[in-house]
């Protein structure tokens, strides 16, 4: 689950690669070149093309697709996607960090059981988990029925097909992705450090912010990456829980491909999205390096 694995350069017994070594590695390198590098390059090429009225791609050079990406509408969508994903990530950190930390501090037997409990939703289909919320949130659904009969609210809450529903869906889908890496780095942490901080007069809050958070930063960073990136591009949850009203960048790309038949524009959106993602990745790495220094 470690999202940022270190290069395996430490093996002192590694030998300089022989031609044979290169031959053996070739299939994997070719695979990466064909299915990772080539598609991205073609994506960039397509983003400068245009389309005919049936939607077939015409190879001429144009900046219009990028001009459109930086048009008000799409900037707003981009900003909103980042906003929702950031909110989701924030809630996941707030909910997941204490849980991951708590689990890691238990004695091994309890710890493993609790960890299993996190793994089960993690391995269960996210679609199914999203679907579960529809029955709960709809106007005549379980939540409203319960609250109404308990007389907590006078009339049904409007939850389904609102941004609130989208964020609930996103948090629910990605929370385990935050708990697991946090657990991973918290488990390695020596309990004595925390108690030492306390002995030195740090209150629980100060111990948390000045000792615990910096020491578990790699886990948080990995969790943030694992939640934030997929949350921006997710279209299924916004479709199912947002009533197709709360467009996020993933919905727009999907619509451009499968409705508007505008592959070049979808490609341009994809390129910008990728750049955005690379930037946030580098920012996290940079923050991590600073934390270590």
């Amino acid at each position: 689950m470690q999202a940022l694995p270190a290069a395996d350069a430490e093996n002192p017994h590694a030998r300089r690669a022989t031609p044979m070594g290169w031959w053996l590695l070739a299939p994997m390198l070719i695979w990466l070149a064909l299915f990772v590098v080539a598609p991205l390059l073609i994506l960039v090429v397509y983003s400068f093309c245009s389309r005919d009225d049936l939607g077939r791609v015409v190879f001429d050079f144009t900046w219009t697709n990028y001009a459109r990406v930086f048009d008000d509408t799409y900037l707003k969508i981009l900003a909103r996607s980042v906003g929702y994903a950031a909110l989701t990530t924030l809630i996941c950190v707030a909910a997941g960090f204490p849980a991951g930390w708590f689990i890691a501090r238990r004695p091994p037997a309890v710890r493993n059981r609790l960890l299993l409990l996190v793994m089960i939703p993690f391995w269960t289909s996210f679609l199914i988990r999203t679907y579960a919320w529809i029955a709960i949130l709809k106007s005549e659904g379980l939540l409203n029925a319960t609250l109404l009969s308990a007389r907590v609210i006078p009339q049904p809450l409007e939850l389904l097909y609102t941004p609130v529903a989208v964020v609930i869906g996103l948090v629910y889908a990605y929370l385990p992705f935050m708990i697991l890496p946090v657990y991973g780095s918290a488990e390695k942490l020596d309990n004595a450090l925390v108690e030492a901080a306390h002995d030195l007069g740090a209150g629980p809050l100060r111990a948390f912010s000045e000792v615990i958070i910096p020491l578990t930063w790699p886990g948080i960073a990995a969790g943030v990456l694992l939640v934030f990136v997929p949350a921006i591009g997710m279209f299924a949850i916004t479709d199912l829980m947002g009533g197709a009203k709360v467009a996020m960048i993933g919905n727009v790309i999907q619509n451009q491909v499968f409705k508007a038949r505008n592959l070049p524009f979808a490609a341009a959106l994809g390129v910008v999205f990728t750049l955005l993602f690379v930037a946030s990745y580098l920012a996290l790495q940079w923050r991590g390096r600073r934390a270590r220094a």
């Binding site: 591009g233 999907q254 490609a267 994809g270 993602f277």
Partner: peptide, 21 residues
């Protein structure tokens, strides 16, 4: 680094780029 790309690349970008490929 290249190996890590498909693990962390947004799925939607990967989907579109593979479709085009």
């Amino acid at each position: 680094t290249l190996i890590c790309v498909p693990m962390i690349m947004p799925e939607i970008v990967m989907g579109v780029s593979l479709l085009i490929l």
